[in-house]
Structures are given as C-alpha cells and as structure tokens.
Computed example of a mutant assay.
Amino acid sequence: MLSLQQLSDRLEIQDLVYYYAHLIDTKNFDALRETVFTEDAHIDYSVFGGSVGDLESTIAYLKQAVTNELFPDTQHLNANVQVQLDGDTASGRVMCFNPMDMALPDGKRHTFFLGLWYVDDYRRTEQGWRISRRVEEKSWVFNTPEFMSFEDG
C-alpha cells in the first residue's frame, strides 16, 4: 500500500510531466528553467535529431528548432506515466504521442506523428519535484516529411 507521501509524490511528478508538455506546446521554453528541470539537468533529444546537453543548451535548441514559423501547432500527449520512487529521487518512463504540424516553404502544411518515450530521473528540490535527466526513446513515426532523417533511424 502506498503512503500518503508516496501518493502525493506520484501525483506531483505526473503533474510535472504534463506541465512540461504544456510548456513545449505553448513554446514557453524559458519556464522550463524555473518549473520543470533541475539546474544541472541532462536532456537528450538526439533520437529525433535534437540536442544533447545541459538545460541552457536545450532551451537554446528549442527556441531555434521549435518555432511558431516552422511548427505552428504541436501537441505532446503524455500517458502511461510509470514512476519508481526512492525517497527524494525517482525514475520514470512516460509515453508521448506527438502530432506535429509543420509549415512548408510553399505555404502548405504537413502533419506528422511521433511516438516516443521519455525516460526520466526526478529529484525533489525545495521548489518541488524536478526532472534531472530526460532521454527520448523513439517508438515509431508516421507521415514524416521525406527530408527528415529519423524515419528509419
């Protein structure tokens, strides 16, 4: 049986991963610094051609790569949040279904879908639970533009 603290911790972590998705979809990348990640976080988006590194380089990458001009609409639907608690640390695996609406140079738009897992480490801080490590794992892709290289990789 879970204690009240364990229930609270699980719900706080679940809210954290949902809030991350909200910030990404609203392109409020600077808020990741204050509310989602630890200062020393390591983030690996390389499975889909993204950055690998610390929090500041990740925020810089997101500001450059996930612009309103290129991706006017995105949605990160998180589900199957699995959390293993260990005191003030935890690990987790979160399913993400990610439709992406891409603006093309000819003015048309192209919608594609990514299926992925976030493999996370969490840490309790004075401000609450934060992600200290996040690695994306590819599950599947659908309808990606031909010029995107992660279709088979």
Rank of each mutant, 00 (worst) to 15 (best):
G50Y: 07
S51M: 04
S51R: 02
V52R: 00
V52M: 00
V52S: 04
V52I: 14
V52C: 08
D54T: 12
D54F: 00
D54P: 04
L55V: 02
L55P: 01
E56V: 11
E56S: 11
S57F: 06
S57Y: 01
I59L: 04
I59G: 00
A60F: 03
A60T: 10
Y61C: 03
Y61F: 12
L62F: 11
K63Q: 13
Q64R: 15
A65W: 04
V66P: 05
T67H: 00
T67A: 08
N68E: 15
N68A: 14
E69T: 11
E69G: 06
E69V: 08
L70I: 11
L70V: 15
L70H: 13
F71S: 05
P72I: 11
P72N: 05
P72G: 15
D73S: 10
D73Y: 14
Q75K: 06
Q75F: 03
H76C: 00
L77V: 10
L77C: 11
L77G: 08
L77N: 12
L77F: 11
N78Y: 04
N78C: 03
A79T: 15
A79L: 05
N80I: 00
Q82T: 14
V83H: 00
V83S: 02
Q84I: 15
L85F: 08
L85V: 09
D86S: 15
G87R: 10
G87N: 12
D88Y: 05
D88Q: 09
T89H: 13
T89C: 14
T89F: 05
A90K: 05
A90I: 08
S91G: 07
G92C: 07
R93M: 14
M95G: 07
M95W: 09
C96R: 05
C96E: 03
F97D: 06
N98I: 02
N98V: 08
P99Y: 12
P99L: 10
D101K: 11
D101N: 15
M102P: 03
A103T: 12
P105L: 06
P105Y: 13
D106Q: 10
G107Y: 11
G107F: 07
K108I: 02
R109P: 00
R109D: 06
T111C: 11
T111I: 13
F112P: 04
L114G: 01
L114C: 06
G115D: 05
G115K: 02
L116C: 13
V119G: 07
V119A: 03
V119E: 13
V119W: 03
D120S: 03
D120H: 06
D120N: 12
D121F: 06
D121L: 10
Y122C: 04
Y122D: 01
Y122W: 04
Y122L: 02
Y122H: 04
R123E: 11
R123Y: 02
R124P: 03
R124Y: 03
T125L: 07
Q127N: 01
Q127C: 00
G128H: 05
W129Q: 02
R130A: 06
I131R: 04
S132T: 12
R133H: 15
